[in-house]
């Protein structure tokens, strides 16, 4: 389990990294390395070069920009959890990150890395989709912004172009009547979930006005369950009905820890868990 040979480039700024990347199709970006390095050591991929962006200044900044909180790509999970702005404006993100791996991994793994990698079992891509986040990408032709909903295309497949680097994620603030509630079911604490749910709820008094349900660890990417959300708004929690709706909306893909039936069941009961949390 030793990585195959590769060359290594330590980028000092984004421009260099983009240039280098655009010149070499087989080079890959290295951020925290928590997903990339194990894959290299298992010889699952053999890139020509690792472009290390982790030394680039200011790419880990967390700041407020208008109606958004802007999280720099290199902010580690620990940076984000311990950031005062995030704690004040986005306490739910702190709770979510507590479920991401373990402290040692959170100290290295980056927010941008997780969003860019797009592991369908990861929490943050689903969070970004549920929050309607904007993903900031920089490439040879400058900067562009992609809505998280449009960023995830398929299994580990994103809209990131080969010359692009993800530089930041911008999350709009929740209004006073909006809540982001999440839950997940894992075999062990810190594991990728068997199924997880990010729910953005908009309340009118205590009635649900609007609901976005975004699942993770269920299929090939963050799975949005629009019809099911509609059913919840209209009829509340009805296990059989919701299960049927989810089954028609999401192509559940089983894994070692849970079959597709298990995931469908958990996806359904997660709605109940979310509604119960909402009541509290």
């Amino acid at each position: 389990m030793k990585a195959p040979d590769f060359s290594y480039f330590e980028a000092q700024n984004i421009e260099d990294a983009i240039k280098y990347k655009s010149e070499d199709d087989e080079a890959v970006i290295l951020a925290g390395g928590q997903s990339l390095l194990p894959a290299l050591n298992m010889r699952l991929s053999s890139p020509s070069c690792l472009i290390d962006i982790s030394k680039i200044n200011n790419l880990n900044e967390i700041k407020i920009e208008g109606d958004f909180i802007n999280i720099g790509a290199l902010a580690t999970h620990s940076d984000v959890m311990n950031n005062d702005l995030v704690r004040e404006k986005y306490p739910c993100l702190v709770d979510i990150l507590k479920m991401v791996a373990h402290a040692a991994i959170r100290n290295k793994g980056t927010h941008g890395g997780s969003i860019a990698y797009g592991d369908p079992a990861a929490e943050l891509p689903a969070f970004a989709v549920a929050m309607d986040a904007e993903i900031v990408l920089s490439g040879l032709s400058g900067q562009r912004i992609v809505n998280a909903k449009d960023f995830y295309l398929g299994l580990f497949e994103t809209d990131l172009k080969s010359d692009e680097i993800l530089t930041a994620i911008r999350y709009p603030f929740l209004s006073h009547n909006q809540h982001l509630i999440f839950d997940e079911v894992c075999r062990r604490h810190g594991d990728y979930a068997m199924a997880g749910l990010m729910a953005k709820v908009e309340l009118d008094q205590s009635k649900i006005n609007n609901l976005d349900l975004v699942y993770f660890a269920t299929g090939d990417k963050p799975n949005v369950a629009q019809n099911t959300a509609r059913l919840v708004i209209d009829n509340g929690y009805d296990y059989e009905k919701l299960k049927k709706s989810l089954a028609s909306e999401i192509d559940f893909a089983g894994d070692l820890n849970s079959s597709s039936e298990m995931k469908l069941h958990l996806a359904t009961i997660l709605i109940n868990k979310i509604l119960n949390k909402l009541e509290r």
Binding site: V185, R187, M194, N257, S258, M262, L264
Partner: peptide
């Protein structure tokens, strides 16, 4: 004894 085995035993899935 996994969660899935429990749910199968309980007839939930």
């Amino acid at each position: 004894i996994t969660p899935e085995k429990i749910l199968r035993a309980l007839g939930k899935i």
